[in-house]
Nucleic acid binder design. Structure first.
Length: 926
RNA sequence: GGGUUGUUAGCUCAGUUGGCUAGAGCAUCUCGUUUACACCGAGAGGGUCGGGGGUUCGAGUCCCUCACAACCCACCA
């Protein structure tokens, strides 16, 4: 492995020039592999060696992005967040794995392929399942690795060796295992019931795949003539029953009319028969509680084959079901000659016309109702009676709910737990079969002589098989993609399922078993129900464990104006375009800043710009440090040939960074910066443990820019101390690396004294500071700020001032630093004659009163007067603050009830403010 | 019809358990070529925290209520 020094410090950081090279470096090194490079060289040694404890693991899996698609901004966000965590925990020496995935995207890809078929005037029905599968496979082959390249562009530190494709054999095998176990446990059944069909795609959907939209529609009142019965005896009761419907075409499949048993209006009708309009059939009038008396006419047509509720009614009353609409959305032969072959919408018009002709239409009104649509093509969903595979979901959902109630999984934000609980509590049986060929074939075969005889068999490539002398025909359906991806965490870690063998027995050196359950699942709120819920249910079922210990939901990234991004609106922002313009680090920072868990928020370009600026700032800081430290820096501990050694991996584990033990902190600024960096690191650890990403970015930004660059580097310019500068830079790079990996690594590779990879660095020991010295720098900062304030507030004041100090050791010891920071002409002690003037009560300049220092700026009286008005403003402010504090402390209830420290603090601040006021007044000569 | 979340500076958003002067980035204004950085430095302006009420010594934060917005769920024909 060769890390040739290819990087040079250009004036401006150009991410486009280096990102790909840096990623290649990482990937080749093996740092992203499960456990990192620890097992490859001696850093952590052999785990079996006595005394060595296995490192604590940290793991996460990627929601597999569509293998053939392009990453969208949500992917970039989600992967960026996980990458922050992965890199962060590597820095802490954890045994980390971030497992990538690639999704065959069953339905999505199928839709695209079907469209391509249309172009060559073919349909799916022209081919066998195998042919179609192979064709789709070839169709997507050339774009198969599209998104993998894009993940690299984002700098994601995932273990490519662990990459799992959703059609990999191990996925299929485990999915079959699960299916078989569910079957054996009686949780799989072949359901003859209403399923939601998309007539365009000719497949059924799960409830969750249907989008409901409010739409205007028409409700028709239709008269069904009553046949027979003795109701004719009374003339005032009409010989018809009027029902209301929005879907008159389904009337052809009616097998009853229902009324509420408690409905006085229809009491006498129950048990009678009506003639179903447009047909010759007689259907009964039945009573069922399901009917809402207050809605419409209080009488409902019952079409068991085309409405889920009606199906239920039909079951209760043993009604026939007649399918009048087929899977293609067209009327079937059952609908009668006049309608067969028409699409449902046409049939509706014709039915209305025919009813009108027969004078059976009694009313018509416009209403707004909700209609289910295909989430992909927008077609109106047809509820059709069909045979599908279902999972009895109650036992799974109840177990999952219990795990949630027992807090086995922590949720960020917390309220998502309740949302999920509500979902588990209302979840109904899950249709897991799909009528598309691109997916995992369902391993089930049906006895050709006995429709009800289904067997499990994984020989899905055989169209028919023979078992015990009986011939079986395979099911042509495939699994719902969520059924397989719901098993993702234990599939990708090869975790032994159904307790067939112990996890310990399975664990080999290459095994990822120890990474299950995952430390965290991080994904968008949109995946709560379709994915996270399924993973919890199936994870518990297959492994007896929750699949992850914590779940973090990020909110959806909207466009710059807070609108949902969608292709149809044309407001989609591509992460790749952002990266091309600003770099991957800037993208990652920008998208992470200003966000909180679970909250949908607008994409903010200005945040990306802020991120870009930070990269540049850090870059230039590094250039400066390298320049001051010199090319030879580090030779004394790396050996004289250090410069040449850069060309090889430093596998001897020698010092690759500034040895902390050799650090000699020489001035207050150095003590201060060391303390600030130590605190930032501790704070960062806490923030990330709570998944407070935005605040973490802010912390890093603020530390690097407003602490290290603005104060430490500026202070250091007056007294260069190479080891400390180098150390501070290294700490900054480590602090920032999880958030902006490319620029920090590029810098690491460009510095003369660092070696190996920043991505494989650990937080080592940190330097020790002296608190008193640190506090001194705080005082120096206050003084400098006051000087800057004074100078900025004197109109037309351009000269460089001198600072004169009296009996003030702090200024005396740090005169040069203060001069540099405040851009003063000179900092010098009081001269005798000035002391005399002071003794005589004369002015020697502007007394700096706000910072508790004995010091003056040599400004003449006229200038001081000009400054006076500003000073008076400050006096007023201070008086206001004092008044506020006094009022608070005079409030007996406050003093009695507020915590003692708070009261003490208030008192202390009051003292300080009074002191400041006195000085200000003195400055003004009042 | 139910449920959830939100409404804080011009814009995009932070603000964990109520604690005193509400923060950041970007934008704006003034000044500044100074040993890295104009993708820069120094300084400044800008908020009655959606309206109203309540609890509390103290409310952006808790409670009630109203308004508006977004999202999710739902079998009303």
């Amino acid at each position: 492995m060769c890390y040739t020094k290819v990087m040079r410090f250009e004036k401006v950081y150009e991410p486009q020039d280096t990102e790909a090279k840096i990623y290649a470096l990482w990937e080749a090194s093996g740092v992203f592999k499960a456990g990192g490079r620890a097992h490859e060289h001696e850093i952590d040694g052999d785990k079996t060696e006595a005394g060595k404890q296995p490192r604590e693991t940290w793991s996460t899996v990627m929601p597999p992005p569509n293998a053939n698609g392009n990453l969208h901004i949500g992917h970039g966000f989600e992967m960026g967040l996980k990458d922050i965590l992965a890199r962060h925990y590597r820095l802490y020496g954890r045994d980390v794995v971030y497992i990538p995935g690639a999704d065959h995207a069953g339905f999505e890809t199928w839709v695209v392929y079907e469209r391509a078929l249309e172009h060559i005037d073919k349909t799916r029905f022209d081919f066998s399942r195998e042919e179609l599968y192979q064709q789709v496979w070839d169709f997507v082959a050339n774009t198969r690795h599209n998104m993998e390249i894009q993940i690299r562009m984002l700098g994601i530190s995932c273990d490519w060796n662990a990459l799992t494709f959703t059609l990999d054999p191990k996925v299929v095998n485990t999915v079959y295992d699960t299916f078989r176990h569910l079957w054996a446990d009686g949780l799989i059944y072949r359901g003859h019931k209403i399923a939601s069909f998309c007539p365009q795609h000719q497949t059924s959907f799960a409830d969750i795949e249907i989008t409901h939209k409010e739409e205007k529609g028409t409700m028709w009142d239709i008269a069904y003539p009553i046949v027979g019965g003795d109701i004719s005896a009374t003339d005032d009761i009409p010989r018809e029953i009027v029902i209301s419907t929005t879907r008159p075409e389904t009337l052809l499949g009616d097998t009853a009319v229902a009324v509420n048993p408690a409905d006085e209006r229809y009491k006498d009708y129950i048990g009678l028969e009506v003639k179903l309009p447009l047909t010759d059939r007689l259907i009964p009038i039945i009573a069922d509680d399901y009917v809402d008396m207050s809605f419409g006419t209080g009488a409902v047509k019952i079409t068991p084959a085309h409405d889920a509720n009606d199906f239920g009614v039909g079951e209760r009353h043993s009604l026939d079901d007649i399918s009048v609409i087929g899977v293609d959305g067209k009327m079937t032969n059952e609908a009668g000659e006049a309608y067969a072959g028409m699409v449902a919408a046409e049939a509706r018009t014709k039915v209305i016309e025919d009813l009108e002709e027969q004078e059976l239409l009694r009313g018509k009104r416009e209403i707004v109702h909700t209609v289910g649509h295909c989430y992909k093509c927008g077609s109106v969903i047809q509820p059709l009676l069909s045979d599908q595979w279902f999972i009895k979901v109650r036992p799974l959902a109840e177990r999952a709910a219990k795990a949630l109630e027992n807090d086995e999984i922590a949720f960020y934000p917390q309220n998502k737990k309740n949302e999920l609980l509500a979902y588990f509590n209302e979840l109904r049986d899950w249709n897991i079969s799909r009528q598309i060929p691109w997916g995992i074939a369902i391993p089930a075969f049906q006895n050709v002589d006995d429709e009800s005889d289904w067997i499990f068999d994984s020989r899905v490539t055989e169209e028919s098989i023979e078992v015990d002398g009986k011939k079986y025909k395979r099911d042509e359906d495939t699994f719902d993609t969520w059924f397989s991806s719901g098993q993702w965490p234990f599939i990708v870690t090869d975790y032994p399922v159904y307790a067939e063998s112990s996890p310990e027995a399975e664990a080999t050196s290459q095994s990822l078993v120890k990474y299950y359950p995952n430390s965290v699942m991080e994904c968008g709120t949109d995946l709560l129900r379709p994915w996270v819920a399924k993973m919890i249910m199936l994870g518990l079922y297959a492994t007896d464990k929750v699949p992850f210990k914590e779940v973090y939901f990020h909110g959806m990234v909207q466009d710059e104006h807070g609108k949902k991004m969608s292709k149809s609106k044309g407001n989609v922002i591509s992460p790749l375009e952002v990266i091309a313009e600003y770099g991957a680090d800037a993208f990652r920072l920008g998208v992470t800043m200003n966000r909180s868990a679970g909250q949908a928020q607008a994409f903010s370009k200005s945040s990306v710009i802020a991120g870009r600026n930070l990269c540049n700032k850090l870059w230039n800081m590094a250039r400066f440090v390298q320049d001051k430290v010199g090319e030879d820096y580090g030779e004394d501990w790396m050996g004289a040939d250090a410069g040449n050694k850069r060309d090889d991996v430093n596998i001897e584990g020698e010092h690759e960074e500034t040895p902390v033990t050799e650090l000699d902190l020489r001035n207050p600024a150095e003590h201060w910066v060391v303390a600030e960096l130590n605190e930032a690191r501790e704070e960062l650890e806490k923030l990330l443990a709570d998944y407070r990403f935005a605040e973490s970015v802010e912390l890093v930004y603020n530390t690097i820019w407003h602490k290290v660059a603005d104060w430490f580097i500026e202070a250091e310019k007056t007294a260069i101390n190479p080891p400390v500068m180098a150390y501070v830079l290294e700490q900054c790079l480590k602090l920032a690396h999880p958030f902006m990996p490319f620029v920090t690594e590029t810098i690491w590779q460009s510095l003369s004294w660092t070696d190996d990879l920043l991505a494989d660095e650990k937080w080592g020991d940190h330097a020790i500071h002296d608190n008193k010295k640190r506090a001194e720098f705080g005082k120096i900062m206050k003084l400098v700020e006051e000087i800057r304030f004074v100078e900025a507030n004197i109109p037309e004041h351009k000269q460089k001032d001198k600072l004169i100090f009296g009996d003030d050791l702090l200024i005396a010891e740090n005169a040069e630093m203060i001069r540099g920071l405040a851009k003063l002409d000179e900092v010098r002690p009081l001269k005798d004659k000035e002391q005399k003037k002071l003794d005589d009560g004369e002015s020697i300049g502007l007394r700096l009163a706000n910072s508790e220092r004995v010091a003056w700026l040599d400004i003449d009286e006229k200038t001081i007067e000009r400054y006076g008005s500003n000073l008076r403003k400050r006096v007023e402010e201070t008086r206001g603050e004092i008044a506020q504090l006094e009022t608070r402390l005079e409030n007996e209830a406050y003093v009695a009830k507020a915590p003692a420290e708070l009261v003490e603090e208030s008192k202390a601040i009051l003292e300080l403010k009074r002191d400041i006021l006195n000085r200000l007044l003195r400055e003004l000569g009042e």
